[in-house]
Design a protein around this nucleic acid. Structure first.
Lengths: 192, 192
DNA sequence: GTCTATAGGACGATAGAC
DNA sequence: GTCTATCGTCCTATAGAC
């Protein structure tokens, strides 16, 4: 079930996290996945095909661990759940770092590769909507528009903080503290 | 005074905005600047040298137009000045788009090129401090720490929104509206 | 589906003249 | 400081066998 193609995608996420989209060499990807370069072109057509499908793979995987996270026994308040979900992306675990790095890279690449934009927009939308739902559970009386805006801001801020963290200018602790305060500011604004 | 080297840096900013850091070819840069590739290596040593100095150039230039902006006759309230300064980076003019694109690219590149990090950190610090000053003029009673945090959040959010705008997923109007609301939320928080 | 082998081009960098 | 010319490498992509 986790076929060759899937294991190539897993390898692609690792390589992108290690070298960036800019540093992704098909040959290195092949070595990482333990296959030949020809097989990669067979499955993905060209370099852009690799990037597109890797982006989809990464966003699916992120959605999955974001969802599963709550399956732990504990009962969390809506606000705790909101905070936990956002902070999940600012953690120094291999998996999160890999996902964040690859995600940042793919978004940055989309500025110059229009082929990536459609998938990027879809993944972003799903992520924003999930966040708007969580916010709505904390502030049930807020309007859908206000919730959507807050969700867009928090996710965009998270991406900005994540990038600073990954590029070495912002310690993780500090990034997390900043994000928590932003959640507080947004909730205050919604509760007016 | 605007010597060859400067005009190469201007050309580099244009090429990076057009093709990205990964898409920057020394040959294309040479053509854009109207010089030979050899001259570029003479002035910048290697590709990384080009990137480093271009980053410095861009951050200086951004600082300059950020400062000059207030020299227009009108007297603005501190809050108007704050809003104007931040919104300045979300405009569809050639110069701003070029600066934002190149800035985003260089930050993303720094994740994988440690040589860029020092310059990046310095430029970010200057930008954050300027923003903290502006916030301090709006809310004089706020603590320095609170101002610094708000400034870090607003600039990180701006980078996140900017990236979404440039990667095609967020219309400029919407990005501007989101940023204005974030300023509002941060000021509310500071004024408590 | 998967491999080996390689074509073919692009690109960074330098040598050497002026 | 600036150019012309070029070397050598790296990298995407495909041809063709199994």
């Amino acid at each position: 079930m986790a076929g060759r193609k899937t294991s190539i995608l897993e390898a692609a996420a690792r390589v992108i996290a290690r070298r960036g989209v800019r540093g992704l060499r098909v040959e290195e990807l092949a070595a990482e996945a333990g296959v030949s370069t020809a097989l990669i072109y067979y499955h993905f057509k060209d370099r852009t095909g690799i990037l597109r499908q890797t982006m989809e793979f990464i966003s699916d995987r992120a959605e999955r661990y974001t969802t599963e996270r709550t399956d732990g026994a504990e009962q969390l308040s809506p606000r705790e759940e909101l905070e936990r979900t956002l902070l999940l992306e600012l953690q120094d675990s291999a998996e999160v770092r890999e996902n964040s790095t690859a995600w940042g890279e793919l978004r940055a690449s989309a500025v110059f590769e229009p082929e990536l934009r459609e998938d990027l927009a879809r993944a972003t939308l799903i992520w924003v909507q999930e966040m708007a739902d969580l916010l709505g559970r904390v502030v049930p009386l807020a309007s859908a528009t206000a919730l959507a805006s807050a969700a867009e801001r928090l996710t965009a801020l998270l991406e900005g903080l994540s990038m600073r963290w990954l590029s070495g200018g912002l310690p993780l602790d500090h990034a997390r503290a900043l994000l928590l305060e932003a959640i507080d500011a947004e909730l205050r604004r919604l509760q007016r």
